[in-house]
Design a protein around this nucleic acid. Structure first.
Lengths: 201, 201
DNA sequence: CCCTATTGCGAGCAACGACTCGCGTTCAAC
DNA sequence: GTTGAACGCGAGTCGTTGCTCGCAATAGGG
């Protein structure tokens, strides 16, 4: 944001722009949403848009930050309340929280859909890092229950599996599976993986 | 392909174009590769390109078909030889085969990277369908060993997890994990998931 | 050698994208 | 009320993209 809006009307405009951006992205997709479209939808000129956002990317990044913040808040809350639960329960809880946020509005769904493209943006990078740390903490805290011989690999595989499966599910136009079926299967899979070290070998 | 090349020189040109397309995509990425760039790299004019390909998408689709064919061949071969192996072994075998193909040349890596965008193209759709069927067949054949209560959900989760984790791994510039670590973790996870129905409950 | 179909060319078109710039308007401090 | 800064505007710039069209070069059967 190149200039801080100081007057009320400009602050309103920034809010309008963000809302319009969310709406246009939801309607036309991330690629189809041009700065001109967004400005028009906000009832504002392109020039004004560029007064407050350095680039289209900066605008998207602002939207992303909102989204990431929501996910982070709700996930952290679940994590705290379930920190001593078993793997299946905590996975289920976190997935439910993520779905809850992602399905709040269509723009967030579209953003989740394009996770792979947006991974480089700082807000998403921060969110990913945070999730990784949270998982690591959980596994270290419960290291007696789960024997993981290659922690980095296990984390990579687990997180990416959840991650992209959810993203792909959200991206479907007409899903053949229900949200709960996917959550169930994913938490079963993760729980089985983490517990495998105990039973066998 | 709007016109079939009949003379030798035109067939050569089509081959040149495909090769150049692969090279340009590898160098500049899928988005950065314009038809003009590709034609130039092939030492051919844009007009000639459009003599043999209806559109840019058609050109990419041709490339995709080559890639999908290679994956399919090598995966099928592994599937046949490992059809009675346990889940970990067969997963490992298939993943190794996929990596083998995907790492053959940088263009294929780029294509694998953009799997999510290319899913709609017919070759990739066919490949996905084929993989799904193969997994279903394996699980039905071994239905005594693995108790899956929700087969569609289990298939969705398993395939997507493998799928996108591999795609993401291939997309990394400087991976922190080795190929084998990822393959190992993924096949451990899948095996644990499929076997979970037996031990517990 | 000729003649016609096939091939090859590449300047140029139309559409669209992100982004700028000069100018008129509004606000708020004095 | 005046004045200067903040704000808002949108036609226009510049670059890129996918793609076309009229024309020249070539091949190869007669």
């Amino acid at each position: 944001m190149r200039k801080q809006p100081s007057q009320q009307r400009s602050r309103d405009m920034v809010a309008q722009l963000l809302q319009a951006a969310a709406q246009v992205i939801a309607e036309r997709g991330l690629d189809g949403a041009s700065t001109n479209h967004i400005a028009e939808a906000a009832g504002v000129s392109v020039g004004s848009l560029y007064q407050y956002f350095d680039s289209k990317d900066a605008l998207v990044e602002a939207l992303l930050q909102q989204f990431a913040q929501r996910v982070l808040t709700v996930v952290d809350e679940r994590l705290r309340s379930l920190i001593d639960a078993d793997a299946r329960t905590i996975t289920r809880g976190i997935l439910e929280a993520v779905f809850e946020v992602a399905e709040q509005d269509p723009c967030q769904r579209e953003l989740a859909r394009h996770w792979h493209l947006l991974r480089t943006q700082s807000s998403f990078k921060a969110l990913e890092q945070h999730m990784l740390e949270a998982c690591r903490l959980y596994l270290l805290r419960h290291h007696r229950d789960y024997r993981i011989d290659n922690l980095p690999a296990a984390l990579f595989v687990s997180i990416n599996s959840l991650h992209y499966t959810v993203a792909h599910y959200l991206g479907q136009e007409r899903p053949t599976l229900s949200r709960d079926e996917v959550i169930g299967a994913l938490s079963d899979m993760l729980a089985a993986y983490l517990q495998a070290g105990n039973t066998s070998l």
